[in-house]
Design a binder for these strands. Structure first.
Length: 653
DNA sequence: CATGCCTGTCATCGA
DNA sequence: ACTCGATGACAGGCA
């Protein structure tokens, strides 16, 4: 009865990389023509692929595949579809990344429309095409340099437009947020997204400290967690607040060449080390700091993934996040990255991120970001490596950083191979995620000021993000004075420690929260058990009463003789016999009671003592005495109450 | 002005 | 020996 109500808690392990891994394997299979079961013919060219992949991406293929189930299916595409347009789409189907240029984007768009490529048309072309081909679009307002909360917040205060934007999003924010948090959330959606991005790695906490994992598990947080990795968050944030005012100029500077020795490309080095903050850039276009209200529907809202847990209930929403990436080539990559996050309002949060993405993307051709798209820099789009990702983080395209995917990938690529990923997401969400940067600005600005005074040849913002080896290598390659060296080390140490302190505090809060959960759970369990005990006690009482009634009836109707009672006692002389509760009294009340009943009562009460009706406590007026059995002629030590002892004596007398 | 909260920093410890 | 992360303690800012 009760056991059926006690369920074992369920936990869910959700891999953040599984889908990517599967997709990559499928792509490899396609390239090796392994397990491919369909041939697509376009303009006399044939492409091998997997039906399931094509069908899942394209309505056209889905319709065609379902009609033909046999092996060796060959599908010829309509004349409108060209190989130039189809190849990137096929690539997209297997990589979630669409590589396109201004020259072929129309062709791709046309093919995507014909083939009904899901999630690509609106998510990509609806706003990319106007940006490429809208001649009315000016180049003003292209600086998308702000990212960190502090600056967003400050910028917002300085800008009426941002206030408007904030008003737009304010309704989306939970009313329970503290003003500070709410402001931060309202100010800059990428910042929120940034914190969401952090949620991918907080699982480290549990691995770092088993006790936290225990608490998280106890509260079922193992699957619903959304913790953060403030380190990357901050480094990301701080790194990006330095817009590159002139890439070409940066490239020409001497320190670039020295940075290339670190394994960075010239562009990376330029991006990384010479991006002096342009005051004007951060001020002149405050509207870019936040949302673009004009593009709220650019991305379709994708379905949320779900997790399950019996206790506590999981977050009911895990919105996806789309990431726009750029590659070090002349192609633009729009990829969809579904990542586990938690936010109060998935659709709205998502839309704000989408708007930000669209907003930022719209500015690319005019910003320094566009420069890296120039064909002269890289002719080939290559896989992102950690160094690339790292310098991508420094680009002035906030959505890159703020969405956190770059961070996550950098982390993954730094710790493992690029394809071998941060293994899982197990995150605990707490509101602390979103307010990590409120007062950071002052410290950062002070540090920056100091760095300026020290005349460092690079930005101190980046040194925290560097790995140990990179940092040491960078320090070696730089001709730093003793003071500069100390300062750099000091900054790095303090930044690291600052981040560690945040993590530590967050863990502590999580731990407290989990303990509160545990307490609440245990209280509920205790109340439940108490109620159950009371119920069982009542049941027992009722049962005893029923037996009592039965016994009364039996004795009254049967009118047992003493010998019969002896026999009855013999066969019912069990400790657990419910009659035992009444024998001490019944023996005195009924006519059949008498000295003969003594063995019966004694017998029934031997093992468990004499019990009072309705109670489970043994009365203390019992004594162990030898009782003579007339039938057997033997004496037996039995526990007999004082009442039963005195009764025969009075009767005998 | 006192208080509590948040954050950065330092010192220390253990890995 | 050195680095790094975690964490307690302390101080300062802020509401």
């Amino acid at each position: 009865m009760t056991m059926s109500r006690c369920k074992t808690s369920e936990f869910t392990f959700q891999s953040s990389v599984h889908s990517t891994h599967v997709l990559r394997c499928l792509d490899e299979q396609r390239q090796k023509d392994h397990l491919c079961d369909v041939t697509v013919v376009v303009e006399n060219r044939s492409y091998r692929a997997h039906r399931s992949v094509l069908a899942s991406c394209s309505e056209f293929f889905s319709a065609r595949m379902t009609k033909h189930t046999g092996q060796g299916l060959i599908i010829s595409l309509p004349d409108e579809v060209t190989a130039e347009g189809f190849e990137p789409l096929l690539q997209f189907a297997y990589t979630a990344k669409l590589l396109f240029t201004k020259e072929n984007v129309l062709e791709i768009h046309n093919c995507a429309t014909v083939l009904g490529f899901k999630n690509l048309d609106k998510a990509c072309f609806d706003f990319i095409l106007p940006k490429f081909f809208d001649s009315n679009k000016g180049s003003s307002g292209v600086q998308k340099n702000q990212c960190c909360k502090t600056k967003c917040w400050k910028a917002k205060n300085d800008s009426g437009l941002n206030n408007d934007v904030a008003n737009v999003t304010r309704n989306d924010s939970p009313a329970t947020q503290s003003p500070k948090k709410q402001e931060a959330a309202n100010t800059c959606s990428p910042c929120q997204a940034e914190t969401d991005a952090d949620t991918e790695t907080e699982s480290d906490y549990s691995s770092l400290c088993p006790k936290y994992r225990k608490f998280q598990l106890a509260c079922g947080k193992a699957q619903s967690n959304t913790d953060t990795e403030p380190e990357d968050t901050e480094s990301t944030c701080s790194l990006n607040c330095r817009p590159c005012s002139s890439f070409e100029k940066c490239k020409s500077e001497d320190n670039v060449s020295s940075k290339t020795s670190l394994g960075l490309t010239e562009e990376e080095a330029a991006m990384y080390f010479c991006c002096p903050l342009t005051e004007q850039s951060s001020k002149e276009t405050p509207q870019n700091l936040c949302l673009d209200k004009t593009s709220p529907q650019m991305f379709p809202v994708a379905s949320s993934s779900s997790v399950k847990s019996s206790y506590p209930p999981p977050h009911p929403y895990l919105p996806t996040r789309e990431v726009v990436q750029i590659r070090a080539g002349n192609e633009l990559t729009v990829s969809e990255c579904k990542t586990e996050t938690v936010c109060p309002n998935p659709s709205k949060e998502r839309s704000s991120v989408e708007m930000e993405v669209a907003n930022q993307l719209s500015a690319w051709p005019d910003t320094c970001c566009s420069r890296i798209l120039e064909p002269s820099l890289h002719s080939q789009a290559v896989e992102m490596k950690s160094s690339e990702l790292r310098w991508l983080k420094q680009l002035e395209c906030p959505f890159l950083r703020d969405l956190g995917a770059v961070d996550a990938q950098v982390r993954c690529s730094e710790t493992t191979s690029p394809s071998e990923e941060c293994s899982y997401i197990s995150s605990v969400h707490s509101e602390e995620d979103s307010d990590s940067f409120d007062t950071e600005g002052d410290s950062e600005s002070y540090t920056s000021e100091q760095a300026r005074l020290m005349q460092l040849p690079f930005s101190v913002d980046g040194i925290v993000a560097l790995s140990r080896n990179d940092f040491q290598q960078m320090v070696k390659t730089q001709q730093l004075t003793r003071e500069q060296l100390d300062f750099v080390h000091d900054v790095r140490r303090r930044s690291k420690n600052r981040i560690a302190a945040r993590r530590c505090r967050k863990r502590k809060l999580d731990c407290i929260h989990n303990l509160e959960c545990e307490i609440e759970r245990l209280w509920n369990e205790k109340e439940k058990l108490t109620a159950e005990k009371q119920h069982l006690d009542q049941m027992r009482l009722k049962t005893r009463e029923n037996y009592s009634v039965l016994y009364d009836k039996l004795c009254a109707e049967a009118k047992l003789q003493p010998e019969q009672l002896q026999v009855f006692a013999k066969y019912t002389s069990l400790g657990e016999c419910p009659f035992s509760a009444h024998l001490s009294t019944k023996a005195q009340l009924y006519p059949c009671s008498g000295p003969e009943l003594q063995p019966l009562a004694s017998c029934l009460g031997t093992d468990t003592g004499i019990y009072e009706p309705g109670t489970s406590t043994r009365t203390d007026n019992t004594r162990n005495l030898p009782v003579y059995n007339p039938h057997t002629g033997n004496s037996k030590i039995m526990s007999i109450s004082a009442d039963q002892i005195s009764k025969p004596e009075t009767e005998n007398s």
